[in-house]
Amino acid sequence: LVRYRTISKIPQITLNFVDLKGDPFLASPTSDREIIAPKIKERTHNVTEKVTQVLSLGADVLPEYKLQAPRIHRWTILHYSPFKAVWDWLILLLVIYTAVFTPYSAAFLLKETEEGPPATECGYACQPLAVVDLIVDIMFIVDILINFRTTYVNANEEVVSHPGRIAVHYFKGWFLIDMVAAIPFDLLIFGSGSEELIGLLKTARLLRLVRVARKLDRYSEYGAAVLFLLMCTFALIAHWLACIWYAIGNMEQPHMDSRIGWLHNLGDQIGKPYNSSGLGGPSIKDKYVTALYFTFSSLTSVGFGNVSPNTNSEKIFSICVMLIGSLMYASIFGNVSAIIQRLYSGTARYHTQMLRVREFIRFHQIPNPLRQRLEEYFQHAWSYTNGIDMNAVLKGFPECLQADICLHLNRSLLQHCKPFRGATKGCLRALAMKFKTTHAPPGDTLVHAGDLLTALYFISRGSIEILRGDVVVAILGKNDIFGEPLNLYARPGKSNGDVRALTYCDLHKIHR
């Protein structure tokens, strides 16, 4: 019993810090008490220290592992850092350059016999395009090294910054494609005289377009951006097909006994025919423009016929181009109408809503002055909100995010209106959640004399007048207030005048 009563005193000691020596009952000389009392004092002292730490809000209350900052290894790049964003855009520009100039170089340097010394005699450094290609190869190699040090988000939505895990993730992902696209074939085969082989191998750079397509997928929600990307894709495919079309004609031209190829026909049409040795002929500019003209006309199913396939190889390629053109029509131009419709969806919704308003007016036989006010209010409210119901949009977000959005939407009023000066951010967040926005066209009466005042109004834009009878008592403008002081009276009061809008007004109100 003594032991039980001794232990039962522990909660009292913990909360009230009572010393055991003052209790005459606990001072009985028993061996059990002498053993338990020192333990009680020690526990009391420890609990006292913990309570003191909690009340003082000291940093040592938290466990040590929670006080440590997340460790980022040296030379690790955050995937959302500004440097990584700028670097990704730079790589994107280099990939676009590669997609345009690599097929052009591979096709127009394929057994090209233009006048001038061969590239091997001039030297590697004197070729501007080769120098640019070398810079692109170096940048792609540097990009691989950067990807080995860039964080990523795993399946659990955690940012991984450990170098080993980053390397394994990159090896399992895009490393092989990036490595093949970054191989400097110019340096590996330079001086061997195989410019045709170098041009063909350099087309491996186009593998990076797969990554670019995935990154550009984030802009699919913007109709104008999608339309622009589709047109660029169409032009890029036409450019690639033009390079292939020229390569076919250029390879067949020296081996044909009869002059029936499209390059021969082009030379005869523009007065620059090929001679018996295969030299001469149109310039590279004429060849490229004509090839691009043929691919565009074939892809769009126009086909004027002034550039036509004559050999079997050219006919087979033309059939493939027609098939590609039909697929592009289905996948690209078939979506253009939907994209344009999405661009004008706001206008369509406006006309639909206006039609419903006019049908309501016609069905209920609203008189002319009231009908005009109804239409003007709808037009003004639509121009202010673009038909978007803010309350319906915010309803799907958590309250903390709703408060931040409301604070942002009402920031101008909260910053410049005098009653809100000096208020804490928590108070402003709470008030912003209570605001209701209303609009009024010129001549609209917001409050009639004798109406119950259940709200306090803040003028965000425009001006109003307060009338008693036919006498203008006051004219209020931006950041002015009218209405009933909230919670100042037990019952809502009545208006002693009319409140009429002089201009288009936007008002925020808080109800009782």
Rank of each mutant, 00 (worst) to 15 (best):
P309Q: 01
L241A: 01
R362D: 03
M179P: 01
G173S: 13
E221F: 03
F175T: 01
Y293P: 01
K111G: 14
L200M: 11
P128R: 03
V357Q: 03
W382T: 07
F185S: 04
Q402W: 03
P163M: 05
T311A: 01
S283T: 05
R205M: 01
G116V: 08
R165V: 07
H79K: 01
D143W: 01
S277T: 08
H73R: 12
G164D: 05
E158L: 05
E158G: 13
S192F: 14
L187M: 14
L413G: 01
V210H: 11
E196N: 15
F435M: 11
S297R: 01
A381I: 08
V159F: 05
M328I: 08
T438P: 01
F185Q: 03
P184Q: 03
D178P: 01
D268A: 09
L355P: 01
L216C: 09
L209R: 01
C400T: 06
R421T: 13
P117A: 13
A224M: 11
L241W: 01
F378Q: 13
D286M: 01
A204L: 11
L241Y: 01
H364C: 04
T438K: 06
S277M: 10
L129M: 11
A247G: 01
G116C: 05
P254N: 15
H416E: 14
K215P: 01
V142P: 02
L413D: 01
V168S: 09
I166W: 01
H169D: 04
L229G: 05
T295F: 01
Y288L: 01
Y246M: 11
F294H: 01
R211L: 01
F228M: 13
V132N: 01
W240E: 01
N335W: 08
A423H: 01
V212S: 04
G280Q: 01
G422K: 12
D88T: 01
R205Y: 04
L374H: 01
D286P: 01
T311S: 01
L279T: 09
N275S: 09
A330N: 01
F140A: 01
T437R: 09
F101M: 14
A238Q: 01
K425F: 04
P398Y: 01
A291V: 01
L401P: 01
T102P: 01
A291Y: 01
T120N: 15
P398S: 04
G396V: 09
I388R: 04
N156H: 10
M231W: 14
I284K: 03
P309Y: 01
T437Y: 12
R371I: 01
F363V: 10
L229H: 03
P441I: 10
P441C: 14
F294R: 01
A225H: 04
F397Q: 01
A247P: 01
D257V: 05
E157Q: 14
A235W: 01
T295Q: 01
L414G: 03
F363K: 06
I284Q: 03
W262V: 03
A392P: 03
